[in-house]
Computed example of a mutant assay.
Amino acid sequence: MSVEEASSARIVVGIDGSEPSKVALRWAVRQAELTAASVEAVTVWEMPFTWYGIPFAPDRTPYIERAGTLLHEAIDAAIGPEHPVEIRCRVLEGNPAGALVDTSRSAEILVVGNRGHGGFSEALLGSVGQHCVHYATCPVVVVRGPKAAEMTVGISPPGRIVVGVDGSHSSKAALRWAVDQARLRRGIVDVVIAWQYPPAYGMSDALVTGDFDRLAAQVLRESIDEVVGPEPPVEIRESKQFGNTVQVLLDKAQGAELLVVGNRGHGGFAEALLGSVSQHCVHHATCPVVILRDDVNSRPPVTVEPNGP
């Protein structure tokens, strides 16, 4: 692929040479094909040893060269010599977590593997991925699961996207993003709400009636109506279940292309979506997990048409 003028849409992916980071790169390239974006592959290195704050090896050149070699070898191993989208390479010095968050500030998506390896650069999810999930200002994708590991570069076949809602702003941002991605993939969206009996104290009159199932259905329907409207552009299936929010979402996401959740929800009726729900999903889901921040809710949806016939 010839190098052309960079697209304004940018997907940042963290590379540390590990297999999960190569899987994350393939996911990022496939997403870039769908959205006509460019991929920014980032490797971050740190001076390994200091003595009273002074590096033992003040010459940075070998580390920069090693990082560049690692990055290009990872791209060749994951994608091959022909790139279906523009891939820009960046080698940065500093803390990997902070560098990825800073680099992704104006990006469409930040993509990380579910784990990395120590030694040359810090693990991606470990602490780096955790930091990105908490502090990145754009959607964060944690690529995990057997389907992702087997993925090859190329336009995705139609698939299923699962999204958790609880009526909060961030869950509506997640729903909006999921619907837009399903349109690009010509897929379907499973919109899921889970409910449990709240503590006996502090309940409103509506909850005292015991009609929790009805209230869940109302929150689910109102969220869809507000975000999608009466004529959704993709097939949407509603799912209302009693049970632990995390387990309901993980079970529903079995075999899905993506699980999408907000970075936090609200307590009371539904359990928070990041808090504990999103934390558990990024660690235990069997498919890639997308974390949406509530401030992403103000962004207009992507309007790029799907590639291909």
Rank of each mutant, 00 (worst) to 15 (best):
I193C: 06
I109T: 10
V227D: 01
V277Y: 02
T43D: 00
H117E: 09
Y52R: 14
V3E: 14
S156F: 15
W45L: 08
A41L: 04
A36M: 09
H134F: 12
C281T: 05
A272V: 09
S7D: 04
R160L: 07
D180K: 07
V42E: 03
R115Y: 08
A200H: 09
T137I: 00
R183D: 00
L124Q: 11
V112L: 02
A253I: 05
T43R: 09
P230W: 05
V112F: 03
L274I: 12
P146A: 05
R176I: 02
I64D: 14
A36L: 11
I291Q: 01
V289R: 06
D16Y: 11
T43H: 13
S127A: 10
L71Y: 03
E257A: 13
N297A: 15
H284M: 12
M203R: 15
G126A: 06
P55Y: 08
P301C: 10
R60T: 15
R66C: 08
M47A: 12
P300W: 04
Q218L: 12
F212P: 09
T152D: 12
A178L: 07
Y63R: 13
V192C: 06
E5N: 10
A194V: 06
I64Y: 15
A182D: 08
S276Y: 08
L70K: 08
T61R: 14
E40C: 10
V142G: 00
V219E: 10
I291N: 02
I64A: 12
A97L: 04
V261I: 08
T43G: 00
V290D: 01
Q254Y: 07
V208C: 00
A99G: 00
H131Y: 15
I161D: 06
V290L: 04
P48A: 06
P139N: 03
R90T: 13
D16W: 10
Q241L: 14
V142D: 05
I155Y: 10
V142Y: 09
D251R: 14
T152G: 12
T303H: 13
E40A: 07
I161Q: 10
G229A: 04
T245K: 01
G243I: 04
Q130T: 14
W177V: 05
D180V: 11
P232F: 11
V189D: 01
S156T: 03
